[in-house]
Amino acid sequence: MTDAITPFPIRVADTELADLADRLARTRWPDAGTVTDGSQGPTLPAIRSLVKRWQNEYDWRIAEALINASGSSRTVIDGIGIHFLHIRSPEPDAVPLLLAHGWPGSILEFREMVAPLTDPVAHGGDARQAFHLVIPSMPGFGFSDKPTEPGWNVARVAGAYVELMRRLGYGAQWFAQGGDWGAAVVSALAHMRAPGLSGIHLNMVLFRPTDQEVAEASLEEQAMLAAMARYEAEQSGYMKLQNTRPQSVGFALADSPVGLAAWTYALFQDVSDSGGEPKRVIPLDHIIDDIMLYWLPNAGASSARFYWDNARTQGGMPGGPVPLPAGVSMFPGEALRLSRRWAEKRFADLRHYNQPERGGHFAAMENPAALVDDIRATFASKR
């Protein structure tokens, strides 16, 4: 076993990009369907527009250069190669911060937050707000290795992240932030009281309101419950499939870039704060970058299997209130929201709670400035 951390530059072969271009050109399109809105999934015009951009104007090499300029590195933990970005702050007293993505997110979803978090002085902040950033791809996602056995659930990923921070020399004090599956992993880190972890911030909280909370819900909380109910009834089909039969859709995700794009775009459509038009709030090239981090490493099926593993083990996470200092940001377009009152029951030491004016599930891409502000506010008293 080795603790080696090595540079890991990404260099996608021209032949792979040519193959992608050929597949896009030969797309067999479905008919438009029987509705004109997104109630059956992404519309034909929306995906045609995305693919037109992908074919004619998008340049993968820009994203590749960004990754390689951001401390692209690799280490093997628990038998799995973990790809991560490691971006050090110029400030000598910066504190390490792990940023954890979920599905269908990626390491690049945090790109707009990197500069203000690492170099706050240059972005209207204070040197005491500086962080060194560690941004890993989960096993089965991006350019991390794909698990070859069941069992890579939330708790196991959290354990790998603890080891990653130790290897980087960050065991004394560090923080963690996450949304989606990243929020589950960060919550697990807090429950396991990971060595050196001094606090967490979440922009999504996995929870179910109690019967009493439902019965006593305020008008604001009733609106939150309605959004949850709509998500469960109309927008969660992807989750149910990936919980139970990920390999079924995996063949399509591996073979068809447009199929992968539509499967991914559906989430950007449904749970961003965009009225069903995500390119209004996220640059289309950034959405395509995200799709590419599933297409190029053929991670569509392996990332879907993460749902299957967690559905069978409940993620391996303990229950009870989160024991470490925590902050929560509830963006209005997030489908799973909880009120401050509900949050206070689920966090033993809630240091910060905020409801930004705009943004949704992809907060780091939709409203990075607000997320940066809330991260700074959460950890200010712990530095």
Rank of each mutant, 00 (worst) to 15 (best):
P104E: 03
D93P: 00
I135F: 14
G125M: 05
A127C: 06
A63S: 08
Y58C: 14
I82Y: 11
I80E: 12
W103P: 07
G125D: 04
F110D: 09
R61L: 09
G38R: 15
G140I: 00
I80G: 05
R74M: 11
G125S: 05
L66F: 13
M113S: 12
W103Y: 15
V95L: 15
W152E: 09
A63H: 02
F110Y: 15
A94F: 09
G151M: 01
L44M: 12
Q129G: 01
L50A: 03
D145S: 10
D19S: 07
A46N: 00
H132V: 03
L99D: 05
Q55H: 10
A115L: 07
A65I: 06
L133F: 02
S72R: 15
G33I: 02
R111N: 13
P104C: 04
S106D: 04
L99G: 06
L108V: 12
G33N: 05
L44F: 10
G125T: 00
L97N: 10
E149C: 11
I107T: 12
H83I: 12
M113C: 14
L20S: 08
S73F: 07
E149Q: 15
L66N: 12
T34P: 00
T43A: 03
I80N: 09
I107F: 12
L44T: 12
E149V: 14
F141Q: 11
A127T: 01
V134E: 06
L50P: 02
L108N: 14
L85K: 12
P30D: 02
V95F: 07
G125I: 01
S144E: 07
L24M: 07
N56K: 00
Y58R: 12
E112V: 02
R88L: 05
W152N: 13
I47A: 03
P136N: 02
A63R: 02
I87C: 08
L24Q: 05
G142Y: 04
S144D: 04
A65W: 02
M113N: 08
P30H: 02
D78S: 01
P104I: 03
I62A: 08
R28I: 10
I82V: 13
S70Y: 06
E112T: 08
P150K: 00
A63I: 00
W152A: 07
A115P: 01
G105T: 07
N68R: 13
L117W: 13
R74C: 04
F131A: 02
A122V: 08
Q55V: 04
S39W: 04
K52P: 01
G142K: 09
M113Q: 15
V114S: 05
Y58G: 15
H132L: 03
W60S: 06
S72C: 11
R88P: 00
I135R: 14
E149S: 15
G102W: 14
H86P: 14
V121P: 01
R128Q: 06
L99S: 07
H123A: 03
G151A: 07
H86S: 15
H83E: 12
P92K: 11
G140P: 02
W60A: 04
M138Y: 06
D19G: 01
L85I: 10
V134L: 06
I135S: 14
L98R: 07
K52M: 03
A21T: 11
V121A: 14
W152M: 11
L50H: 07
I47Q: 05
K146C: 05
I62P: 00
G33E: 05
I87L: 12
P45C: 09
H132T: 09
P92D: 11
E149I: 11
